[in-house]
Computed example of a mutant assay.
Amino acid sequence: MKYGVPLGLLHPAAWKDVAVAADELGFESVWLPEHLVFATDLSLAVYPGTDKPGIKPTTPLFDAPAYLCHLAALTTRVRLGTAVHLFALRHPFASARAFATLDAVSGGRAICGVGAGWYRGEWDAAQIPFENRGARLDEAILLARRLWTEPAVSHRGRFYSFEEVAFDPKPVQAHLPILAGGESPAALRRAALLCDGWISMPHTLDSIRPQLDRLAALRDRRPFSITVHAYSLASPAEVPAWAALGVDRLIVRPWARSRDAVQALVAFARAHGLS
């Protein structure tokens, strides 16, 4: 089992120390979420399935691939991922360039986690239609694959059209992994058909099973990774049950407060035999 660390659940002042500790302790990956901008109108921010705003407009926001480039310079082994990047909220040239740069400066450690997003406010502010964000993301994923691998690319699509361009340097990884987040039918189809893996919302062993069943019905035989946010992971004895479900990466949160995170990672690494 691989273990990831969700930096977004920490105060930003702790990100550097926690990422360095994760690298030294043998954690496989660290992950950053992102938003581009928050509107001050909270009527646009009610999180799906709730009646409360899912954001605070004054929350500090950082460009996730850019910040991960900073962490790449401080680490040597740990992989650097987004959970998730709103890839289609920019032109595919910008998002593809960001991850190619991250992969280059990290020596091939980038993981491109993408999602269509739930928060309408930032799409409205960027003047990009919220209603077609999923279809726009699907086209952007296909474009990024081509930009990262083909010598020259031209495109005529529903959302993006351009004459032939070169795109260099290519990522260090021959196949930079793209993982899709989200649990809607469209998000699961995107993961299964267009991506290299899926990133879940927070789950327990019991709550993850229906999503994995739905995903399995859509998948083909291509290599595929399953990443689960398992913040309630209780002990190493629980891990084999996750693995039996086909999960190969758990994003864990063994701390209660940001100031205790490094110490909690040390204890977790010892308990789970990391090195």
Rank of each mutant, 00 (worst) to 15 (best):
A237M: 02
G8D: 14
R158A: 10
A256L: 15
A166K: 07
V239I: 09
A166C: 14
G134K: 04
E164A: 07
H35F: 13
V20M: 12
G26N: 00
L44T: 04
R221K: 11
D138G: 06
A126W: 02
F38I: 08
T227A: 14
D138A: 11
G117I: 05
A243S: 02
H85W: 13
I141Y: 05
G107W: 11
K52M: 15
P6S: 12
E28V: 00
V114L: 06
P57N: 05
P53L: 09
A152T: 13
D41H: 06
G181E: 07
L142Q: 14
R209S: 11
F62W: 12
A243N: 03
C112M: 14
F167M: 08
H203S: 10
F130Y: 13
V247C: 11
L10I: 07
V153C: 06
T204K: 03
I251P: 00
D260Y: 13
G26I: 04
L215V: 05
S43T: 15
A261T: 12
P185V: 03
L61I: 04
P53N: 08
W31M: 09
A22V: 01
A83K: 01
L61N: 03
G113Q: 08
L215A: 03
I208C: 09
G181Q: 05
A267F: 03
A192S: 13
P202M: 10
T101L: 15
M1K: 10
G113W: 02
V84W: 01
T82Q: 08
S207Q: 03
A73N: 08
A166T: 12
L80D: 07
R97S: 12
A241M: 02
D168S: 12
T59V: 09
V266G: 11
